[in-house]
Every structure is written in structure tokens, then in C-alpha cells.
Amino acid sequence: MKRKPIIVFSILVVFIVLVLLISLQSGTFQMTPAEAFKTIIGQGSDQQELVLFEFRLPRMVLAILIGAGLAVSGAILQSISRNDLADPGILGINAGAGFAVVLFIYLFQGSYQNLGGSVYILPMFAFLGALTAAALIYSLAYKKGITPVRLVLVGIGINAGFSALLIIMQLRMSPNDFMQATVWLSGNIWGANWSSVLAILPWIAILIPLVIRQANTLNVMRIGDESAVGVGISLERSRLLLLFLAVALAGASVAAGGAIAFLGLVAPHIARRIVGPRHQLMIPTAALIGSLILLFADYIARNMLAPSEIPVGIVVAIIGAPYFLYLLIKTP
């Protein structure tokens, strides 16, 4: 059931804009759609402008960026491992990034809110953590090449390992930090501001086009190693490069939004169903779907128990977990 890509993209973008607008005008601070509109065109009160442009908008932009980052990261991992169950969360890459972030905060005794300039260093750190996890997975799973099943199994092991390390680290923290870390690790984009957006924007904006350039390689890889070798693709090198891109995307996303699980799994699947497996189309579609899901999940997270918030990662997991089980059952 492939559809015209232009139409698919347009529909997704329209949905994203729609959810964005709905989300923008809902929240604890009451605002009618008319007021919100007036504020957007610059006619609102100071308060309304503050709420809209400083509180709500940055987190929505952040949701869009993180959603795209995780979705594309998942898409790459699924294709290079030829395993539909791969995603940065399940493989332990998110846990590696999360571990690095918590380590960073623990070592530098910063709080989770006012990290100051370190908001820009954090993605680097998360990336290093993600890279460590990926390197571990890759080397442990390597046995004259990588078989997809080994990759996933080793990944699950690494995930468990990093999660255990995280718990040890958290237990050494003060209870306040412990709680904050727990909430952060379950994935949340509270406290988003424009500097957190700026910190992750370059990663997403540069890396995703790079991935799309590799679409052909991904197409071939998905079919199988033999055919990849057959058409002259230097297999391990390309795989490493793509893995690197996936890890960088996941790392930056985790630094900004915590370990949001399942998004990287679900978005590429839906994308494949809509536009088929060709990565030239599948990657951008997955990115848009990832953005849409996270944006919507954030809307729920913000409003369901308002004025308290639920970590957005939990909302995503509630949607994503059943889908994951469904895939597990369907996978031969």
C-alpha cells in the first residue's frame, strides 16, 4: 500500500502542525484559541507571550527534534541489523547515553535543571556513552561478521548491564538527585528551553541528511550481506559509518530528552508500512512519524494529569510496548 510520497509528507506535516497548534493552546495556563492566535501574531499580553514562546514552543520543537532523531536512529539500526526489533532503546545505546549523562551530572555535581553552559556539552557526553555501548555491542556480537540475532541479543545484555550500572550510580546520589535522575531517565522534556533546543538542533539537522545520503547503502544492506558485497559495497565500513550515525542521533536525543523507549522501534515500522522499504522515502517518513508521535505523547503527558506531568517516555512506552509485543509475536 505505497502512496505518493509527496502526499504522505504533506499529510504528516499537516498533522504535525495541527498537533502543534492544539498543544500550543492547551495547558494549565488558560488560553483560548483566539488568544493563542493573537499571541502568535504578536498581539498577546506579556504573560501569554511568555507561556507560548518560552514555555510551550521550545518543548514542542524539542519533541519534534528528538522524535525525528530517535526514529531515524531506529530505522538505521533495523536496516543494518536486518532485525525489526532493533532500536536504540532495546540495544542499550540509550542506556549507554543515559549512563554517561548521569555520570556527568554525578561527577560535576550539577543539578538537572540549571546546568548552564553544560547544556551544550551534555550531548557530546551522551554521544560518548552511546558510542561506548555501541562499541561494546559491536565487538561482543562480532563473530566473522555480525549476525542480526546476535546483535539484538548482545544489545539486550548490554542494556541490562548499563541499567544496572545506572542503578548503582543512582544509589550513590542524594535522594533528590536520585528522584530527578529517575524521572529524567524515564524520558521527559520538562524544562525545555531554547538553549536545549539549540544544543540538539545541529545534531539532528546535520546527521539526518547524512543518513538520507546513505539511503542506497541501507537499501542494499537490508536485503542481505551477500547482495551488498555483490554490488560492491564495502560492507563493514558502511555498517560502521551508519552505526556511528545512529549512535550519534540516539546520543543527542537522549541527552535532550532522556531515554525514551520504543519510539525508534515503532516509527520506522509505521513508515515502512506507508511508503515501503526504500530508505530514500522511509527515512524522512520515519522522522516525521517520530516527531508526530512524540509531539502527541508530550501533549498527553502535559495534560492528562495536569498540572502534574507524566514523563513523556512513559506515554510513548504505553503506546509502544503493545506494538513491540505484537511484533515479537509476529516475528518468525
Binding site: E54, S111, N176, W190, N193, S195
Partner: peptide
């Protein structure tokens, strides 16, 4: 009582209010 209490944003977002 401490910066952890500013749990939903950064200092600037609060101080703008």
C-alpha cells in the same frame, strides 16, 4: 529552598515570571 525545587524549567524561565 534549593534549585532542585525549580523542577519544571530553568531559572530564567521562572525569573521571567
Amino acid at each position: 529552598p534549593d534549585e532542585g525545587t525549580l523542577g519544571s524549567g530553568d531559572y530564567n524561565q521562572y525569573s521571567q515570571m
